[in-house]
């Protein structure tokens, strides 16, 4: 995972996160302890959203902390919180996939998949030469989201990154559930158009 430059308006490491990253670089195990103290609860919530299993979520958090220990350095996260959450999300998603391999999945993530699937028509598909380049697609999505209003992208990321339910998102941002649904539907449509413009969807 490469280090990326956050934009001015986006959250960046606070002094404590910077200190924790220095501990990682100094190979001081207190880095793990401090990270766990500050982020374990949040990481656990992200994993739980995906897996709906307390024990597996705890395991994912431990794996994520270990992965952070392995990757920092050489990585120097621009936003420690985002970096850690991304690791735990991907680990959780890997478990989710292996759990439902070949089976019909259930839960919020399955619903998210259906929502996204419904946002393209049957005539559209991913460009064959770009469909396996996760990073290229992720960069396009990141660029697209930066062009959206803050609340719109927060809702989108909460849904399709964190796997939160519509109700949780509505509560988090103090808006109605229908507002969240409409916002997501519009953003999905715009995203598809953007990906078409980028020739990722053809």
């Amino acid at each position: 995972m490469a280090d990326r430059e956050p934009s001015q308006s986006m959250p960046q490491n606070d002094a404590e996160d910077a200190e924790i990253i220095e501990l990682f670089f100094a190979r001081d195990e207190a880095a793990i302890e401090r990270t766990s103290e500050k982020y374990a609860k949040r990481l656990s919530a992200v994993s739980r959203n995906i897996l709906k299993d307390e024990t597996e979520a705890e395991e994912c958090v431990n794996d994520a902390l270990f992965r952070a220990w392995q990757t920092i350095p050489p990585e120097r996260p621009g936003t420690l919180a985002g970096y850690l959450v991304r690791i735990v999300r991907n680990l959780s998603l890997d478990r989710y996939r292996s759990r439902f391999a070949g089976k019909r999945a259930a839960g919020e993530f399955a619903t998210s998949l259906d929502e996204l699937a419904d946002s393209i028509s049957g005539w559209e598909s991913l460009s064959p030469d770009k469909m396996f380049d996760d990073r290229l697609i992720a960069d396009a999505i990141s660029r697209f989201l930066r062009g959206q209003k803050k609340l719109v992208r927060q809702i989108f990321v909460c849904r399709y990154f964190y796997g939160e339910s519509i109700r949780e998102i509505a509560r988090r941002f103090s808006v109605g559930e229908s507002y969240v649904k409409i916002s997501l539907a519009r953003t999905r449509g715009k995203l598809k158009d953007y990906l078409k413009k980028e020739e990722i969807v053809v």
């Binding site: 956050p6 986006m10 697609i137 803050k150 992208r153 990154f161």
Partner: peptide
């Protein structure tokens, strides 16, 4: 899963 960290944190 490969979104920019700052978008995730935000």
């Amino acid at each position: 899963g490969n979104l920019d960290d700052d978008l995730i944190a935000e």
